[in-house]
Nucleic acid binder design. Structure first.
Length: 387
RNA sequence: GUGGCUAUGGUGUAGUGGUAACACAGAGGCUUGUGGUGCCUUUAUCACGGGUUCAAUUCCCGUUAGCCACC
């Protein structure tokens, strides 16, 4: 049985359904992946995740390296046993967090805060955002750390350059990312079953918003023996016009028979259609859960004539209807807006759980609808209802 | 009853003879390979009445309210 299997192709676009086979179960694609950076999707336990239909969740190498440390998790036989989640997990390599730390440094410029991040050809030296202690990631160490963490899908260690970087630097960083990709692959091939089950490694295409660089990156990453292809970059998921252009550039080059992953995409339900249409199978985003924690909830447009509401708004103080009347099958579909408004107003912990479950269910349910639509050759029809 | 002190937005506090600053609360917006975080906008005829002054939230008098002390 191969790792990835395409089960149906749309007849009017590159959209497809598929199954990713892992030793912790199958993943039906296209699918949104909830983010659980520190081995927890904030506010939700694994029963909650099962109830909303989560098939795979993310965790983060950078955060788990700092706390509790990969060796602790290794002693538990990996993340699955540590957090008691027996379905698939994907870990990000930490490349993007390094990029984020670099961005923070820019913001604090002038306060003589010394750099949190230093990148060289062999790896990255950075300071912990928690206690300022110094750490270093190399392609080899990032993979070895991810082996110990034990996710089913692990990511190559890359450098995500800011969009505003000049093309000379972007090219240099991209070429370095390609060298690192090979080192990651070499390290991984020596030990693909650290905990006894298979771990699969994805490569990441960079090149910012330059067509020639994206094409070059797509060519090189595609030529390597990765199990899946990710598209990274600051614009991906953030600037949807740029994201669509990037996908158009790389699509003729990347292998069709490997899973395609847009990293950091899923801010708005509408965004799913834009990338699924261009052959993307998996995507993740912190935004739905972060927005949830701040009271912004997805709703069907036909209910409120908007695709999201802010439950903390005063109009919901006595609002009798449920969060989204079209989602009453959701595990949290029976709660009234007034109740959730009250929970936020009093900062009750349950507010974050209910809101997070709602937004995640919204996207997981939409992913399911998209899969069904593709199988029934009515993807465009469903898309038209949503845009 | 007498004396003293205080009165600034919903709350707690700044401040000035040229119509007010901050925090929280309130109202609204934002958050994109996650700090439950952070950011932005907005919200006051400075207790009431009178006086001095070109100009009073600021100085003076009175009223009212609160607090303290004494009888």
């Amino acid at each position: 049985m191969s790792f990835f299997e395409i089960t149906h192709k749309d007849n009017t676009s590159l959209a497809r359904t598929g199954i990713i086979h892992t030793d912790h179960g199958d993943i039906e694609t296209p699918i949104f992946m909830p983010v659980g950076t520190q081995a927890t999707v904030k506010g939700l336990n694994t029963n909650n995740l099962n109830s909303i239909g989560a098939q795979i969740i993310l965790a983060n190498t950078y955060h788990l390296h700092l706390r509790p440390g990969e060796d602790t998790i290794n002693e538990f036989g990996g993340l699955h046993n540590f957090m008691k989640w027996d379905k698939p997990i994907l870990t990000d390599s930490g490349g993007f967090q390094v990029f984020s730390l670099g961005k923070q440094k820019e913001k604090k410029e002038g306060t003589n805060a010394y750099p949190l991040v230093k990148i060289d050809d062999e790896g990255v030296t950075f300071r912990s955002h928690i206690d300022g202690s110094e750490h270093r990631f190399t392609p080899k160490s990032a993979i070895e750390t991810q082996h110990k963490l034990g996710a089913d899908i692990i990511m190559a260690f890359d450098e995500c350059t800011p969009d505003e970087a000049d093309s000379t630097y972007t090219k240099k960083a991209m070429e370095r990312t390609h060298r690192w990709a090979k080192e990651c692959l070499d390290t991984h091939k020596k030990n693909t079953k650290h905990h006894g089950y298979n771990q699969f490694l994805f490569g990441i295409i960079q090149g910012a918003n330059h067509k020639n660089l994206r094409e070059e990156s797509a060519k090189i990453i595609s030529s390597m023996d990765f199990d899946g292809i990710a598209i990274g970059g600051e614009s991906v998921g953030y600037n949807m016009e740029a994201t669509k252009n990037i996908l158009d550039w790389v699509n003729p080059i990347i292998p069709e028979d490997k899973p395609h992953y847009t990293m950091g995409l899923g801010h708005s339900p509408k965004d799913l259609f834009d990338v699924v249409e261009k052959g993307i199978d998996i995507f993740d985003c912190v935004s739905p859960t972060r927005m949830a924690r701040n009271g912004t909830l997805f709703v069907h447009k036909k209910i409120s004539n908007t695709y999201r509401i802010n439950i903390t708004n005063a109009v919901h103080k006595r609002d009798k209807i449920t969060i989204d009347p079209l989602l009453e099958n959701s595990p949290v579909g029976h709660y009234s807006r007034a109740y959730l408004h009250h929970l936020f107003n009093t900062s009750e912990l349950l507010a974050y759980s209910i809101a997070s479950m709602h937004n995640l269910y919204f996207l997981l349910n939409l992913s399911k609808q998209i899969r069904e639509a593709i199988k029934e050759n009515r993807f465009q029809e469903l898309k038209n209802e949503w845009i």
